[in-house]
């Protein structure tokens, strides 16, 4: 890309809510293009930085994962409040993804099924207030906050992510078409 001389670096924040980190891995799959990207952007709160809270005036938020628990809601709202553009990044963020397959089950029954004592006679569901409560369902990101762009794919491929980011960074409306557009 032909970057202008000394432009203000764009601030990107990223997070994984009810994600598998696969979208972040696919992001890293842009490989050496990361160096090109690093010349243009700086990372705010993200799993790849040590920043605990998103600072104001982020330009772009990439949100991986659906919304499955109370903490996800807080994190998502923090990013929405601070980022100009928020992207539902990957299938889980777009429609809940495979974790939303729990949506027809009762969340209490799911927990008691998983947290049974070894002999199966009782359940020991963790109840420390430190732990965020699960929501009744897994929600797509746009059912909790407003979303500016959606980038589907489980995960979106590195080339898809690169096309999307370079479109955005150069001021174009991101345009993803066959064969880069995939839901799987």
């Amino acid at each position: 890309m032909n970057a202008p001389m000394n432009p203000r670096k764009l601030r990107i924040t990223t997070t994984s809510l009810s994600g598998c980190f696969g979208c972040h891995m696919s992001f890293l799959d842009i490989d050496e293009r990361l160096l090109e990207l690093a010349a243009l952007v700086e990372f705010d709160r993200s799993p790849i930085t040590d920043i605990k809270h998103c600072s104001q005036h982020c330009d772009l938020a990439l949100v991986e994962g659906g919304v499955c628990n109370a903490e996800n809601v807080h994190v998502l709202r923090e990013l929405r409040a601070n980022a100009k553009i928020l992207v539902a990044f990957g299938a889980c963020a777009v429609n809940g993804g495979l974790p939303a397959q729990r949506n027809h089950l009762d969340v209490g029954q799911c927990l008691s099924q998983v947290y049974r004592t070894p002999d199966g006679s009782a359940t020991a569901i963790p109840d420390d207030p430190e732990l965020p409560l699960l929501l009744d369902k897994v929600y797509p990101v746009n059912e909790v906050v407003r979303v500016d762009y959606f980038l589907p794919g489980c995960p979106p491929s590195a080339d898809t992510i690169w096309k999307f980011l370079t479109d955005l960074l150069t001021g174009r409306t991101p345009r993803i078409e066959h064969p880069l557009l995939k839901f799987d």
Binding site: A88, V94, N95, G96, A100, N103, H104, K137, P140, N142, E143, V147, Y149, F150, L151, P152, R175, I176, E177, H178, L181, K182, F183
Partner: peptide, 18 residues
């Protein structure tokens, strides 16, 4: 067909049928 039409999101709230 969704790819053909450039559908990037499901846009509406989900019904999550069972």
């Amino acid at each position: 067909t969704a790819y053909h039409l450039g559908m990037m999101s499901t846009h509406y709230d989900h019904f999550f049928p069972n």
